[in-house]
Design a protein around this nucleic acid. Structure first.
Length: 966
RNA sequence: GGGCCGGUAGCUCAGUUGGUUAGAGCGCACCCCUGAUAAGGGUGAGGUCGCAAGUUCAAAUCUUGCUCGGCCCA
């Protein structure tokens, strides 16, 4: 037996330098650098100039700290969205932005001051603001680099910042639009206030600590009531903040709570919740004696009885008087009646007496309930925590957070005791109480004047709506459409709801309901913050009338100054210059409150889409894309701002993604230690892996990330990468000369083109739905099942062993080339680095990029349903053959499928036996009544390894190979 | 405590208007190949569809309650 020659060198194996191992973490920075060098973003803009636009508007992250995984997901989804629109051939710019004002940054600067033992109050405001600006600037730069490293292609050299002078000017312009339209008012709201720092605090600046407070029971004598038993009785309230008694304006009850009037030995009568009677008696040192009580029926009653009136016309309501009413007979405040209000939402019988005293100045429940009943705050406690100078009781006597002042022996308790109203007082109530994080001092709720945008007043500056547009037709009343008098301007709430319900597209759809219910139920928008780092509410308030000045000429001067030097123009200015000759500064209060940062970001549409600074933009935006937390935030503030000033939403569509959770589905937090740093993922796995993860999960819901998930993503990536590597190898010396017309191709090739056309249509649909998960799954499945496991596997013999000029091989390579061009483009929006690496590997060009290409052209004629049906049948038959071969392989009868001879009921198949043998990669197929597999007696061709009858001995050549070699 | 949303194989996801035996890819196990080779091909095992009631001839799918988790608010 002669030794078989080695034919390996005569076989056309795939040839490529494209590495199997990606090494993304090392490779990506180099690719980024090249993109930067050729200014890829601008190249893309130039390439898409004049095309249909797709305006995505970037929501600004807060410029503080490194990006976390949520930022990474958010920006990646935005990038994939914008890139896929560019791929479709649209002109889709991406201008990134940052939110720069606000408390967290102020806070950091203050923290630095504390470390240096500097006092913030001694630093000029302009210097403080300058440091805030520098701090924000620093983090903008850090985050910009982090976002770039993610592969986000945007106009990084010209982002928008809410602290840009132009932006600050635009924000104040928007504010003054509300002012000029009369859509601003000054109201009050209880905020957390530190009397030590004399400032309002945010929730984040408050920490809770266990302390011991004074608890007191106070009697409010009932002076009138439709229930005769109540008159003369004492309604008892219990409180741990005795200092709120001097500001009391009413009492509240729970309508379902059972109350009792009872008598004690000395004849006094008290009203408390039945369940709390004994506790109260114990505190007050009273003895409850059933023997001396009145008829039971008369003295137990449900709380709702407090709300009864004798006669609606006359009144005759249950009212009490303030304990100090007799001491201050000249005080309107102390002598006015204290009504009983329905506080069922918050009055409980867990502690106290079941009756709660109401001080609208110092509690949110109190404030809301009193406001609903026409009772307004009185601002008795000053910024330092003392009753103001002109207050009747205890003016400027002590701070309300002073333990002695409010203690059981302090002046408040003493006066109440003297008035006979203090039934108990003890300095022993332990509870958790808010403190200032900075000073560690106790804080209080305190009503302060704030600026509001009303939700329900008519926007008379906007065009009136027809009754249908106002939504009246849904309220059941018959509307005469011809009756013009019915038309009226809508309110801000109505405009916003109409946009949500009828104009904006929501992806996913449920976002509509979410935003709708929030806008339906929200209170007026509080715009003001007593802070330094932000855009000022640049208003002058007439000291006499309390009205803000509304003079367009003044406003114009303000806006001009802001454009010149930003918001500092207000803080550093000579305000008389703004007022001009017409008004005297002395007559006006200069407002120094700043705007809620949500108003800032709510204005981004104005200074990004409309300003002309980014000329390729237009308004409204096609898409806003943010996390679901932004229903309360940016989606809403942008909507309200735009509706209030322009009468419509700033966006055509809103896409929301869920939150990223840890591997167990728990929220990530530093304190739990379950965070995952995107920088680390990028440095270990590469940005493309992180991006593929973002595209793999169902981001419309909350979703997870963890090591196991990332491993799965990496595996998926490798499969895809290898498919491309195989194509690169198979196409190594392919030229246009080899191209074959589709009509001349074998059916298998035409079937694959049909599949490509199907996949192409599916992918396009997914892009339009922003469904990147299904997009990547469709792509992966096609690459895996149709190509790698089917098409490429079958055509291996053809590619390796047929003659280079064989029409079949040429057709195969033509299709592979088409696939290559299509698939590289398909993956480009997601795998931005890998697609470029693949592209450059085949078509090296320093100045070119896969990301400049447009969506592949798919010939509609590729679609052939009859052919597809036929090949579906063939593929099913193929599966039954591989199944039948498996047992023989297991028992080692045959090894390679090429050793198998198969009998198959060919009558059911639309191909002949020889072709079916090629498709199933077996030696021979013959017709038989059922599937049966045996080992062939044929010998193996030394070159192509097929087992054919014509091969005389193992290692000899088959006819085809002989020809090819000749 | 309230509003909204979600819980389908180890992982990521499909499951039309309730209708055969709940699917796919990956991973895993086993087999083959060793001319895509830290690759490629094949076969297979994995699920009481969060739990419990209810409606129905029939429920992953509808209803209610519970539970776990998330966002927002209080």
């Amino acid at each position: 037996m002669t030794k078989a020659p080695d034919y390996k060198d005569t076989v056309f194996l795939p040839k490529t330098d494209f590495p199997m191992k990606a090494g993304l973490a090392n490779k990506e920075p180099g690719i980024l650098e090249r993109w930067q060098n050729i200014d890829l973003y601008e190249k893309l803009r130039a390439a898409r100039d004049g095309r249909e636009k797709f305006i995505f508007h970037d929501g600004p992250p807060y410029a503080n700290g490194n990006i976390h995984i949520g930022h990474a997901l958010n920006k990646t989804l935005k990038d994939i969205t914008v890139r896929s629109q560019n791929l479709l051939g649209k002109d889709a710019p991406f201008v990134p932005g940052w939110d720069c004002h606000g408390l967290p940054i102020e806070w950091k600067i203050e923290e630095q001051y504390r470390k240096k033992k500097r006092n913030k109050d001694e630093v000029p405001a302009s210097e403080f603001r300058k440091e805030c600006r520098e701090y924000a600037d620093k983090w903008v730069n850090v985050q910009r680099e982090e976002f770039k490293r993610l592969g986000v292609l945007a106009q990084w050299d010209k982002p928008y910042l809410t602290m840009d002078y132009a932006a600050e000017a635009a924000i104040v312009t928007e504010l003054l639009k509300f002012a000029e339209a009369g859509q601003l008012y000054r109201g009050a709201k209880p905020v957390m206030w530190s009397p030590v720092e004399k400032t309002a605090l945010a929730e984040a600046e408050v920490e809770y600590e266990d302390i011991v407070s004074t608890q007191i029971d106070v009697a409010f004598e009932i002076v009138d009531s439709p229930m005769r038993e109540l008159v003369g009785a004492n309604a008892i309230i219990w409180t741990t903040t005795p200092w709120t008694i001097p500001v009391n304006q009413g009492l509240s009850f729970g309508s379902d709570i059972m109350y009792q009037v009872f008598r004690v030995a000395d004849g006094r009568r008290f009203v408390v919740a039945e369940d709390l009677r004994d506790e109260f008696c114990a505190r007050a040192g009273l003895e409850y004696d059933p023997a001396i009580q009145d008829e039971v029926d008369d003295v137990f009653f449900k709380g709702e009885m407090f709300g009864l009136t004798d006669d609606p016309a006359v009144g005759g309501r249950t009212i009490a008087k303030h304990p100090m009413a007799d001491k201050f007979p000249d005080s309107d405040f102390y002598t006015k009646p204290r009504p009983f209000l329905d506080g069922s939402h918050f009055v409980t019988t867990e502690a106290g007496t079941g009756l709660v005293h109401m001080a609208p100045d110092h509690g949110e429940d109190d404030f809301d309930l009193c406001k609903a009943n026409g009772i307004n705050p009185v601002f008795a406690v000053d910024a330092g925590g003392q009753y103001r100078e002109d207050w009747a009781w205890l003016p400027l006597t002590g701070s309300v957070i002073n333990k002695k002042f409010v203690g059981s022996e302090g002046p408040i308790c003493s006066d109440l005791r003297e008035a006979g109203s203090l039934l108990s007082a003890s300095d022993d109530f332990q509870h958790s109480y808010p403190h200032s994080w900075r000073s560690k001092a106790k804080i209080i709720y305190r009503c302060t004047p704030q600026w509001f945008v009303p939700m329900d007043t008519d926007l008379t500056h906007l065009p009136a709506k027809t009754p249908q547009e106002k939504g009246w037709e849904s309220e059941g009343g018959a509307v005469d459409l011809s009756d013009e008098t019915l038309c009226a301007s809508p309110s801000l709430r109505e405009v916003a709801l109409d946009e949500i319900r009828n104009k904006v597209r929501f992806v996913p759809e449920r976002g509509r309901r979410r935003l709708e219910s929030m806008v339906e139920g929200r209170p007026d928008w509080v715009l003001s913050r007593q802070r330094a780092w932000g855009v000022p509410i640049a208003l002058f308030v007439d000291r006499k009338s309390g009205e803000y000045l509304n003079d367009p000429a003044v406003n114009e001067r303000i806006i001009a100054a802001f454009k010149e030097s930003g918001a500092d123009a207000w803080f550093n200015a000579n305000h008389q210059d703004f007022l001009g000759d017409k008004y005297a500064l002395d007559d006006y209060e200069v407002i120094t409150d700043i705007l809620d940062v949500w108003f800032d970001s709510g204005c981004t549409h104005a200074f990004v889409l409309e300003s002309g600074k980014w000329p390729d933009h237009q308004t409204p935006a096609d898409l806003y894309l943010e996390g679901s937390d932004q229903h309360r935030g940016w989606f809403q503030s942008s909507l309200l701002e735009s509706c209030g000033t322009r009468g419509h939403a700033p966006y055509k569509a809103v896409l929301t993604h869920g939150m990223t959770l840890d591997k167990a589905g728990k929220k990530m937090s530093k304190s739990l230690g379950n965070t995952l740093d995107p920088q680390k993922v990028i440095n270990v796995n590469g940005a493309d892996i992180l991006r593929l993860w973002a595209a793999s999960v169902d981001f419309t819901e909350d979703h997870r990330i963890g090591d196991e998930i990332l491993k799965g993503v990496t595996d998926n990536y490798r499969k895809l990468r290898n498919t491309f590597r195989y194509m690169l190898g198979g196409l190594s010396d392919f030229t246009d000369d080899e191209r074959v017309a589709v009509a001349d191709m074998p059916e298998l090739e035409r079937y694959i083109l049909h599949r490509l056309a199907e996949v192409d249509a599916e992918l396009k649909q997914h892009v339009n739905d922003f469904a990147f998960g299904p997009y990547m799954r469709t792509l992966s499945a096609f690459a895996q099942e149709d190509l790698s496991a089917f098409f490429f596997d079958i055509r291996k013999d053809c590619l390796y062993c047929d003659a280079p000029d064989d029409p079949k091989r040429m057709a195969y390579r033509t299709v592979m080339d088409i696939l290559f061009h299509a698939l590289t483009r398909y993956i480009a929006p997601v795998l931005v680095f890998t697609s470029e690496e693949i592209w450059q590997s085949r078509f090296p060009d320093e100045n070119d990029s896969i990301h400049l290409k447009v969506w592949p052209e798919v010939d509609l004629r590729w679609g052939d349903d009859a052919l597809a049906a036929k090949w579906t049948t063939i593929r099913e038959a193929r599966t039954s053959v591989t199944e039948a071969i498996e047992p023989l392989r297991r028992e080692k009868t045959i090894r390679s499928s090429l050793e198998a001879e198969v009998s198959f009921p060919m009558a059911d198949l639309p191909v002949d036996a020889d072709e079916f043998a090629e498709l199933t990669i077996v030696a021979k197929v013959s017709n038989g009544s059922e599937i049966n597999v045996t080992k062939t007696d044929n010998h193996k061709c030394g070159r192509c390894w097929r087992l054919l009858p014509e091969v005389e001995e193992d290692g000899a050549l088959c006819g085809r190979c002989e020809k090819v070699l000749a």
